[in-house]
Write a protein that binds this DNA or RNA. Structure first.
Lengths: 241, 241
DNA sequence: CGCGGCATTGAACATCCTCAATCCTCGTGG
DNA sequence: CCACGAGGATTGAGGATGTTCAATGCCGCG
């Protein structure tokens, strides 16, 4: 199909989809064009509202966002993080409504996801993308239901690292982590105070370093094994792009 | 399209799909035929194995099953319940592998889900079905992350009631609930002991009755409001079939 | 009658939460 | 250049929620 050239090589959205299925030129062009039309959302702004009609599928070009549920009494639960290259608002239905609010955690650039009608490879990449989203969501259910605070934290950090590596935004064992402890708490079903203590413990154990917005995981293979985590897989074929 | 006639009226799988989108005769026939080929799985048997290639999408004809994740140390988390009429193993991908194990909780009859290639209405019903599954899964994440034991319990019971009503397997405020407290515990991220105490409390409050495998929810509207639950919706159009 | 699976209960304990204070960092205005 | 203020991180003390361990009860079935 195509060996990603020039600018696209560093475009997370294209890189991620291409890692799922080699993209044909039609797809790459369509993605490049969509990305050129990206719009910016400020941190903390919500750009998809739960219950509202879905505008169509979107792509995160840059920055971090999250899908979130808000309870009437103010409690908040992050359902998943949306990293550069991730998709949101996909649906086969004719008149879908958003199943969750989507909120920018940092400044975010996003664009619409181009139709896959003229590109089988793109359609397939979308399908794999969706399968990954579902698999990570199931991991998250397990995380919240059956892991303790420490395990939840490490499990999430490992997931984020795994996903960022896929799009070239993480090194072997470290990555930019632009989240507050409060955000982490609302993702992990904990309080900010307890997140703080859990992180303190993790630092003391030498499992992680987190400073100046950058997280490092020491010995991730060992930690993954301790908490029973394996990399997410969704297809029988290739496990690495 | 078609007004469900005769035997199909009481066939949960058909009834559920038809509630999402009026089915054309081709779809009803295909479903009837698939259901005729159903196979039985004994309680406690696993009939989809996590990580194994997916055989193709399936339909629950009868009985209760659940998607489950097993941790290496024996901990268990149920990801979702599969009720009569529910689907499992759907994927757009060419070579998908199962994202989770599926286990029969009671004796279960299931069949393959017929291809939607020759029926636009069936394709649409599948799409809506999938949207519901996703929405309920997001609810479950919120349940585990941000609700306490009592809220989790009531929230799950309300969900089950809502879903069983859709397929005609629940009355106004009661339904058959063939689960053990241990199963409930593994769905709610609690211990069996605490599930028992939570149920005791709920009975004492007069919120539920649960005996001989049948659960009754008193005043479900009030309870739903107290725990901030609203019926799940996934489409702009019709809210009831 | 006795066994197996599930439900129920008590007591002690661990994990995580709440409340509240303090600290730190960084950007802004004087 | 420094004081100030705001948002986030950190810590302590006490308490609530849920767990663990172990015993007992219940009920259907062979």
């Amino acid at each position: 199909m195509i060996r990603l050239a020039g600018v696209y090589e560093h475009q997370p959205a294209i890189r991620r989809l291409a890692s799922f299925c080699p993209l044909d030129p039609v797809a790459v062009d369509a993605l490049g064009e969509a990305i050129a039309q990206r719009v910016r959302v400020r941190a903390r702004r919500e750009f998809v509202a739960e219950g509202a009609p879905v505008a169509g599928p979107g792509l995160i070009v840059n920055g971090w966002a999250a899908r979130v549920r808000l309870l009437p009494d103010g409690r908040r639960q992050f359902l998943s993080f949306l990293l550069p290259g991730d998709m949101f608002g996909i649906s086969d239905q004719p008149d879908p409504i958003a199943a969750s609010t989507v909120m920018a955690l940092t400044d975010v650039d996003h664009c619409r996801a181009p139709s896959a009608r003229n590109s089988p490879s793109l359609a397939r990449a979308y399908a794999v993308s969706r399968a990954f989203d579902e698999a990570y969501l199931l991991d998250h259910v397990t995380r919240l239901g059956r892991l303790n605070a420490y395990e939840r934290m490490m499990s999430l950090l490992l997931e984020l690292h795994e996903r960022l590596r896929r799009v070239g935004l993480a090194s072997e064992n470290s990555f930019s982590l632009p989240l507050t402890q409060e955000t982490l708490a609302d993702a992990l079903g904990l309080t900010p105070v307890h997140v703080n203590r859990t992180l303190k413990q993790a630092r003391r154990n030498g499992d992680i370093i987190w400073q100046a917005g950058r997280a490092t995981i020491n010995n991730s293979a060992l930690i993954a094994q301790q908490i029973g985590r394996r990399p997410v897989r969704v297809t029988q074929a290739a496990r690495r792009a």
